[in-house]
Amino acid sequence: MSDDYLVKPGKKAKLDGRDPADTGGLKDEESARTQLADDIVAIDKLQDRLYAEGKRALLVILQGMDTSGKDGTVRGVFNQTGPLGVTVTAFKRPSEEELAHDFLWRAHLAAPKRGTIGIFNRSHYEDVLVVKVHKLVGAKEVDKRYDQINAFEKILTDNGVTILKFMLHISKKEQRERLQERLDDPKKHWKFNPGDLDDRKLWDDFQDAYETMLERCSTDHAPWRVIPADKKWARNAVIASVVRKTLEDLDPQYPKVTWDPKSFRVE
């Protein structure tokens, strides 16, 4: 199922040819939630082994337009995973300290250490998306960043970090409904940011920026997956299945001790 969403390295990724409401072959919401629950349990057990092994790491990158479900994915997929071995970094507007360094500095600082799962809620890709659309730096500078990102991610993978990159693909219609819901429900007012409406006016520009990002930065060592995000239950089920399969392929093992447990007795 996950292979259907892969962006093949060097290939164009036309977003208008991908259905944001696709369910990935999942029969219905009930069966998807059943599958998700099973995958969540498996992810927790595999993460425990990854932490105990302490040799490799997993980095999960979540990118998407406002309301596409980055927070919801973190809660829906990793809510039962032991907090000891999981870190979540939300990338917001850069601080003065971060702006004083190269644009990848804060991403490298947040990269997961061995034995852990790191989750980027937004990421270093903001520097070829928001920065590009709002023209915060020159076009030539943005163009250089794609190769710099690929090199950065190659450094991580060469050092034992497996990278999963998910672009949460939401339709403009679904985004409108979710933004309106935040306005209509007093309990969700805190989620609403008037600036989201400004970015919504630049929808086509953002879609173009995402397509370029996918084409330039889907690599053999860190490919992108475009995940349909109109249906939250399908989005979470698909991502959880990919995370589980990836951890199963890594097959982390509990370390073997060099001493004989039978030689000790607890009084």
Score class of each variant (00 low, 15 high):
Asp158His: 07
Glu174Met: 11
Gln175Met: 05
Ile163Gly: 03
Val161Phe: 12
Lys165Gly: 02
Lys165Gln: 06
Arg178Lys: 08
Ile149Val: 11
Ile149Phe: 09
Lys165Leu: 08
Tyr146Asn: 10
Gln180Cys: 00
Leu156Trp: 13
Gln148Cys: 03
Ile155Thr: 09
Lys165Ser: 04
Tyr146Lys: 08
Lys172Glu: 13
Ile170Glu: 03
Asp158Glu: 13
Glu177Asp: 13
Ile149Cys: 03
Ser171Phe: 00
Lys165Asp: 05
Gln175Asn: 01
Gly160Trp: 05
Phe166Trp: 11
Leu156Gln: 12
Ile163Pro: 01
Asp147Arg: 13
Glu174Lys: 11
Ile170Ala: 00
Phe152Met: 15
Gln175Pro: 06
Thr162Cys: 13
Ile149Thr: 02
Arg176Tyr: 14
Lys154Phe: 10
Ile170Trp: 00
Ser171Trp: 03
Thr157Gly: 00
Arg178Asp: 06
Tyr146Pro: 11
Met167Arg: 00
Leu179Glu: 04
Leu164Asp: 03
Gln180Ile: 11
His169Ala: 05
Leu168Val: 02
Glu177Lys: 15
Val161Glu: 10
Ile155Val: 12
Asp158Ser: 10
Leu168Ser: 00
Leu156Val: 06
His169Asn: 11
Gln180Ser: 11
Leu156Asn: 08
Phe152Ile: 02
Ser171Gly: 11
Lys165Met: 07
Glu177Ile: 10
Leu179Ile: 09
Leu179Cys: 05
Leu156His: 06
Glu181Ile: 01
Ile163Leu: 08
Leu179His: 05
His169Thr: 07
Ala151Phe: 09
His169Ile: 04
Asp158Gln: 12
Ile149Gly: 10
Asn159Met: 02
Arg176Gly: 12
Gln180Phe: 11
Leu156Phe: 09
Gln148Asn: 11
Lys154Val: 03
Thr157Met: 05
Gly160Ala: 00
Arg145Gln: 07
Leu164Lys: 06
Ile155Trp: 12
Glu153Lys: 09
Arg145Tyr: 09
Glu174Asn: 05
Lys154Glu: 14
